[in-house]
Amino acid sequence: MTDPELDAALARWARAPLGDAERVERIVRRAEGLAASPPAGRWPRAARWALPTAAAFVAMAIPILAPTSPPQTPEAEEASFLLLHAPTPIEELSL
């Protein structure tokens, strides 16, 4: 095949229609459905980093802003220990 013959054959190969109207129609119908939802804009893209950043900020701020519990005295610590390790009454066990 000469160069001009190859060029001509390549042009025919590249330009020949597929003759597949049904396939094209199927693609068109599906693609038309895309417009049912708005295209992604800048807002959702910004939200992708803004929301986690805001959440991280709130998580960081809570321990700072929340009221802290008063410091434990030795007496209070002992009372807590006794409550935690108090023997279980017999009547409760029998139930």
């Binding site: 199927r26 693609i27 693609a31 895309l34 295209p39 992604a40 800048r42």
Partner: peptide
């Protein structure tokens, strides 16, 4: 057909 379908989806998704 698959490729064109995917391309239309990408075109719409990245319209902005």
């Amino acid at each position: 057909e698959d490729a064109v379908q995917e391309a239309f989806t990408n075109l719409w998704r990245t319209a902005h």
